[in-house]
Write a protein that binds this DNA or RNA. Sequence first.
DNA 1: TTAGCCGTGTGATTATTATCACTTACACCC
DNA 2: GGGTGTAAGTGATAATAATCACACGGCTAA
Lengths: 224, 224
Amino acid sequence: MDSMIRQFYEIPGKVVALKAGEYLFHEGDSAKYFYFVRSGQIFITKFAESGRVLSLRLATRGSIIGELPLYEENPVYIFNAIAQSPSEVYAIEFPTLHSYLEKKPSLAINLLKIIGMHMRKQHSKFRDLVLYGKKGAIYSTLIRFANSYGQEVDGGILITVPLTNQELANYSATARESLNRMLSELRRQNVIEMRDGLILIRDINFLKQEIQCENCGREICNIE
Amino acid sequence: MDSMIRQFYEIPGKVVALKAGEYLFHEGDSAKYFYFVRSGQIFITKFAESGRVLSLRLATRGSIIGELPLYEENPVYIFNAIAQSPSEVYAIEFPTLHSYLEKKPSLAINLLKIIGMHMRKQHSKFRDLVLYGKKGAIYSTLIRFANSYGQEVDGGILITVPLTNQELANYSATARESLNRMLSELRRQNVIEMRDGLILIRDINFLKQEIQCENCGREICNIE
DNA sequence: TTAGCCGTGTGATTATTATCACTTACACCC
DNA sequence: GGGTGTAAGTGATAATAATCACACGGCTAA
């Protein structure tokens, strides 16, 4: 993925540094920049009027952000982007990106590839949620986090991002209590365990089986 | 949308004619062609092992199909495409499309625009389902069909595509019986009515309010 | 040291949705 | 006209998930 991104560094833009918790943009803001992440992690979320929060991605080095309104008339961000940890992003103005895309076909094709990958991710997430309910959403989220931020340790895969139950619930569009109960159940079944406040997945195959994972690969089945 | 598609006609390809009910491709088939629809309507669906069917789109004139695996290593269709009525599609081989995209930046940019639009559609569908449950999925499906295939008539908007309850349920990932009950409820509330086997939406604003429609416009809120 | 806050865990209850089982309605064909 | 098939409609029940209420533990700031 990094190789596809490299090309974008040649486009003039600016580096933006963010502290943990700082917003890069809010949904509804008029959209001026296309971003990609140089370092750190960025939450992508959406608010519901009811007060609920829907978490969509946790972008990391090499992820692009804010690409959706690229060719809109009055571009507006439809998500929030919030730094989870201190982060740096590279910001390119839409008109600048437009002109480079017109001049450099290989750049446009790379962007096509990246966005195509995003589509695939979304489809697979949609599938998991729709066909296997909340359980599907939660198991799928765990697998995605493992693929993006998992580290092989003795006993399984450690998800190296600290996540509260509430945050995990936001990713699976679930009530915190429901998520909590399902995690307890998984713990009882020895599928996961907690280690220093992080989740250790002991039996990822169990999760995959339950949601009839199509083994689409880490390129697609991730949370970035 | 048509203007964006016109360019693709200049690429060498072949016309494929389909009878109603005929498959253009099955999920799992190795993918060789990128298609766009010249006439007729094409169902895009996905099967679950449980026997359930998930309907995703009803493509029509100007819609592109099979774009997802365009840049995959071993491209495979991940959906089924079935003609709903007698249809014609234009088929372009992936390598041919690749070379044209490299030569004509404006073509790549048009494809970017189209795929970007698809992303927006998907996101809004995901939102409706996730935040407002099955009711959200069903109301959203009705609104999308109205936007794509609705005709203003006396008393409301007539959805000019014949749809069984089962088919509608597949679009909303709902049990037929649940869908049926919700439609009955909407009929009782005078929000919809049946006319010659088609659905007439008498009060689309009711549907929009219930799911906190963001009024994203027909370009996005459709089923194509 | 202690009060306050935050996150976790859990029981009880309610709301939503699926499933099962069946009836009715209608079109089509012999 | 009767038989067959397919879709619609509906009651009863079960499964799933949300909501409400509250207890507990750990951390921290006064």
